[in-house]
Design a protein around this nucleic acid. Structure first.
Lengths: 236, 236
DNA sequence: ATTGACAGGTATACAGCGTACACCTAGCCT
DNA sequence: AGGCTAGGTGTACGCTGTATACCTGTCAAT
């Protein structure tokens, strides 16, 4: 035990190792299971030891976001603004899909770290560099919102029809009964769910290509931005 | 005490009263302070008593969202789809601003109650009723996302320049030092923050009209939807 | 060589959370 | 009269973040 203690002390657990461990732990067990105690245990250390390296859990989460930001590709220089933005957003999205915990964490952050400010500054720079006015860029950044991070607030779930409840072990007669119930309670949702299920080749899947939906909206917005830019839009 | 117990029993605390109390409590003290214990206390009852009326806290939150949904105006019939959608979204936004707790709660909901399904169904109905194809409507609903609820994921905060940190009691030399710091670290953000501060008549305000930003994006999207509809867009 | 500061790990403790489980009691139906 | 039940109570468990005090090894300055 003395040896272990010494071995632990030989690599004295700095801030980066704490953040790194937090990221991989959250990747593995999910953000809801990332507690200070659990993280400490993972590092072979007592919970309070973490507080020598991060002020509190909020700061830990801030740090985790910072490491995520560092994984996002920088803006490609000398590219048209639209594709530069597009590429970077999609890079952010890839990073975000690697770290599912990041979405809820980003959503709840209140403080803005320098790394995050730098990330945003990059976007603003792309728009301004593309010739968009300061005014338009301002509103465009608001419009981009969380899509800047590669995610959308997915609040519309069209999987309701095929599998309301989530369990797959359900007698077929119950399923059809529920489908009929839905068809009459939510006729419009039903039509869409039906169409999505129809298009879907793999019967198992959600019937909805998240990546397609994301790029659909992203391009819709980018095209809108471009149009406003071309007609010298201004907020009066 | 017997009298109190009897008085309490005379109005035996049903599900609706629990939900109503939860909503007003959350309105007053914020969602982060809404605990089962606190809510029970507010109702003059022991915490576990609540569990006779809601299965658990999740279901309580679901119920709170349902009451919020009931405050949103139904779709106005016989209106062009664009303005019908627009009106309803803005009605949702008003409800949401009355209940600040709703945004984080909606964001974290996993189950979808019938009331919420009905709400969504109404939107789908407006698009389909306006002649949009099932396919386009599907993607349009995804694009709408959380904006359906009247909020955007506000992840871009342009108040960074004027008041990084939030405290107003700060020596002016420190403030200018920070501004200079920002100007060189985040030159692009700085330009935008500066412009926003300039436009702002009230020096105190955030320098950013949230309502304007919201409607800006909403209309950008609606116009995009319309354009796609006019050119019979389809996802192949 | 001794001392003292300090960085970093530890131990204990507290207040708060959601909620499982057992219990009680008043009112109603047979 | 007797039991069922709806609804409120009391206690307890395991979990959370973190304040506070303590200890110990390392290193710099005397």
């Amino acid at each position: 035990m003395t040896q272990l203690a010494e071995a632990a002390r030989r690599v004295p657990l700095n801030r980066d190792r704490v953040l790194e461990a937090a990221v991989t732990l959250a990747d593995e067990v999910g953000i809801e299971s990332l507690s200070m105690r659990r993280l400490a245990q993972e590092l072979g250390v007592v919970p309070m030891a973490l507080y020598k390296h991060v002020a509190n859990k909020e700061e830990l989460l801030d740090g985790m976001v910072d490491t995520l930001v560092s994984e996002i590709d920088p803006p490609v220089p000398d590219a048209p603004w639209k594709s530069a933005v597009r590429l970077r957003v999609l890079s952010a999205r890839r990073a975000l899909l690697r770290h599912p915990w990041a979405r809820p964490v980003i959503e709840t952050r209140t403080t803005t770290t320098p790394a995050v400010l730098g990330y945003m500054d990059g976007f603003v720079g792309m728009f301004l560099g593309g010739g968009l006015s300061v005014d338009l860029t301002h509103h465009v950044m608001h419009a981009l919102g969380s899509r800047m991070w590669g995610f959308t607030q997915e609040v519309f779930d069209d999987s309701a029809g095929r599998d309301a409840g989530g369990q797959q072990s359900m007698p077929v007669e119950v399923r059809t009964a529920m489908a009929m119930q839905m068809a009459e309670s939510y006729p419009n949702l039903f039509r869409i769910a039906l169409a999505a299920a129809h298009d879907d080749e793999s019967v198992v899947g959600s019937g909805c290509d998240d990546q397609f939906e994301f790029e659909f909206v992203l391009d819709l917005l980018l095209d809108g931005f471009e149009r406003l830019h071309e007609q010298d839009w201004t907020s009066r």
